[in-house]
Nucleic acid binder design. Structure first.
Length: 214
DNA sequence: ATCCCGAGGG
DNA sequence: CCCTCTGGAT
């Protein structure tokens, strides 16, 4: 993507969706952290389905820790990778209680020290819960960065660093959600819907399949 | 590089 | 059937 197209690319996404938000359901920083941890390689719809049952029963580190691994598994078995997620979330809850007074820490280092929390999850929590201008690179954003030529890179971290170089700082705070929603509904993995894409004119990708009839 | 791993869509 | 979904740990 040409450098001069980056500004109109984001200005257009902003016009389409002025105030983008996560579609994960949460009411506290801890509920958000747990939901994001559970969302790895899973859809937000599937995560919300589980947390709607879990959070009324247990929505604090102590309460979820008290469920135990097998108790927690009962609530999240419909989500992929549920065994490792249950194990990690229980251990994360224990650390939040013992090391952080039951609160969600606000630094990247402290977040990434929690089991099941890597760079992407930490970036989402810093952005959504604490308002920091991080750009979390997930499967959608990694795909869009490479497909459009906005921020090509061989790893998610490389794409993230390139985004911070090329995206105007004014767009950083919401860049993650603009890109993820665009990836979820328009620039989808298999057959991107270029015929209804608002930013196709700025994009390097040339569609291989025509628009469906009707 | 490989493993984990259910649900939904095509 | 195969692919994908807001990855992280080993």
């Amino acid at each position: 993507m040409k450098k001069e197209n980056i500004e109109p690319f984001f200005a257009t996404l902003q016009a389409v969706n002025p105030t983008p938000e996560t579609e994960l359901e949460y009411t506290t920083p801890f509920e958000l952290l747990a939901a994001v941890l559970l969302s790895a390689q899973a859809t937000d719809v599937g995560v919300n389905k589980a947390t709607r049952k879990l959070y009324p029963v247990a929505n604090t580190p102590q309460a979820i820790y008290d469920l135990g691994v097998e108790g927690l598994e009962g609530y999240i078995k419909t989500i992929g990778l549920y065994r490792s997620k249950a194990k990690h979330l229980i251990e994360t809850c224990r650390m939040l209680v013992e090391l952080h007074g039951g609160e969600v820490p606000r630094t990247r280092a402290e977040l990434e020290a929690l089991p099941g929390v890597g760079r992407k999850t930490a970036n989402v929590v810093l952005n959504v819960a604490f308002g920091e201008p991080t750009i979390a690179v997930d499967t959608h954003i990694f795909r869009i960065g490479n497909r459009t030529g906005l921020a090509p890179g061989k790893t998610p971290l490389a794409v993230e660093l390139k985004l911070e170089k090329r995206v105007p700082p004014a767009y950083w705070l919401h860049a993650h959600h603009w890109l993820i929603l665009h990836g979820r509904y328009i620039c989808v993995a298999r057959k991107p819907k270029c015929w209804e894409c608002a930013v196709a004119r700025y994009c390097d990708y040339k569609p291989k399949t025509p628009a469906p009839k009707g």
